[in-house]
């Protein structure tokens, strides 16, 4: 199982965010994408999960082009963007139940276990809009644990999370990688993942980043 990006290319307005971008992630690996603001980190993540079409290049999941075989890929990839993807007027449990109904029947952890793991046990029945931003972020992480996804694509997962939450998320990521999962993430925070196969990809070096 692997995710391969081949010659990815994307331009915003007239400026190439990246061209000829190549990388591979195998089971058990974590990739951090770095770069200054406006260098295209979020765009790259959205291309990787299939929300945006790249201007050029292909993405292969287990040797299948994700544009052609969406089903297998969407079963195996899970994305957390800038927004948590939670309904404010639903409880964490209800939110997880919907995501679970939308994905296939398998799961890594049950909803209760997942919420327990991210330290949100006891908040199962509280409406999400009454939770703090950090707590909602944790519920979003619980959604990943509750899904069968092997590949996690996380855009700034550490935002708004407190110190204890950060180390909790780091251990969750480590555990996921040890279970042959893969993670692609962006973060301004220095990620501390000593025990796993960790690499970084820096955007915005070869391209002109002066104006945005």
């Amino acid at each position: 199982m692997s995710l391969i990006a081949k010659d990815l290319e994307y331009a915003r307005d007239d400026r190439a965010l990246f061209t000829g971008l190549n990388f591979t992630i195998n089971a058990g690996e974590v990739l951090q994408i770095e770069g200054p603001n406006g260098s295209g980190k979020t765009t790259l993540l959205r291309i990787l999960c299939g929300l945006i079409n790249a201007d050029g290049g292909e993405i292969y999941w287990s040797d299948q082009d994700i544009q052609k075989d969406r089903y297998d890929y969407s079963n195996n990839a899970s994305y957390i963007g800038h927004h948590d993807g939670l309904k404010g007027d639903c409880t964490p449990l209800e939110n997880l139940a919907l995501s679970h109904a939308l994905s296939s029947s398998k799961e890594n952890f049950s909803a209760h276990e997942a919420l327990e793991k991210v330290g949100m046990g006891g908040f199962e029945h509280q409406l999400c809009r009454t939770l703090s931003a950090g707590q909602r972020r944790r519920v979003a992480i619980a959604r990943l644990l509750n899904s069968p996804a092997k590949l996690w694509i996380l855009d700034e997962p550490f935002t708004a999370i407190d110190q204890a939450g950060i180390s909790n998320l780091e251990s969750i990521i480590t555990e996921h990688a040890h279970a042959d999962g893969m993670v692609i993430l962006t973060s301004h925070h220095q990620v501390n993942l000593p025990e796993i196969n960790f690499s970084t990809l820096v955007l915005g070096q070869t391209t002109n980043t002066q104006h945005y």
Binding site: C49, G50, L51, R70, Y71, S74, N75, A77, S78, Y79, G81, H83, G85, S99, L102, S103, S104
Partner: peptide, 8 residues
């Protein structure tokens, strides 16, 4: 986004 990405 979650709805668009789900395998349904």
């Amino acid at each position: 986004e979650q709805i668009l990405l789900c395998p349904q």
